[in-house]
Amino acid sequence: MSKSFFIDTTLCTACRGCQVACKQWHSLPAEQTINRGSYQNPEDLSFDTYKLVRMRETVVDGQLRWLFFPDQCRHCYEPPCLDTAGDPSAIFKDGSTGAVIYTANTKNLIADEIIESCPYNIPRKAQDGALAKCDMCYDRVFNGLAPACVKVCPTGAMNFGDRAEMTTLANQRLEKVKNKYPKVSLLDADDVQVIYMVAFDPDLYHEFAVASNNAFDITRHAALRRMLRPITHFASRLL
């Protein structure tokens, strides 16, 4: 059975334990940053930053909200990046967990195509052209541990487990907070293995909180490769 995250943003305090735990576990270096008039830093995901708590201040119905969105790869059921790549030695989906894994061979891909294909704007390129993003802490999960960002979370905003367990939890939480937040929703829940719950219009949190139709406007080269891809590759969804 595949794994899923459930990210309840209504419980996130932006302590950013997840952001650091991710760097710690993956031994990722820090980036040089400056204060740009916001607490959010780094400014964006990068080859060295797989997990980023996005922070936005907004007024909803006359009330100030400080919205936190712990952004990461959604580990799509049908990952457009994987389809675009068409090279299982570079991007593959682990059959048991469903984790979408990038290897060093991503440097042989056309990075911009892969990035553009992602409806959530996740993958990022290194100088040598290799791509990186969240790997679901595949090594931890394989050894029976929760991903670093989930284990570290104090409030229950980050959750991880079997798909069925996570969808149940997501629906329970949805029901529970409906009174408090009438516009609460689960984002693209059927298509991804990282289910976000947001209290307000997802656009208020982040431009790419939900899948953008534009993102599927993949390049011609990518479309071509997609057509040539062996059909067996669809199998991952069915496992």
Partner: peptide, 29 residues
Amino acid sequence: QPWLLEMQPQVFVEISEELAQLKGIKNGE
């Protein structure tokens, strides 16, 4: 610690939008 400095690299002052306008200060300046 680079990981922590990455998230909060500089000393800041938080001011309201109204005060910023009054003093002609832009965000991040």
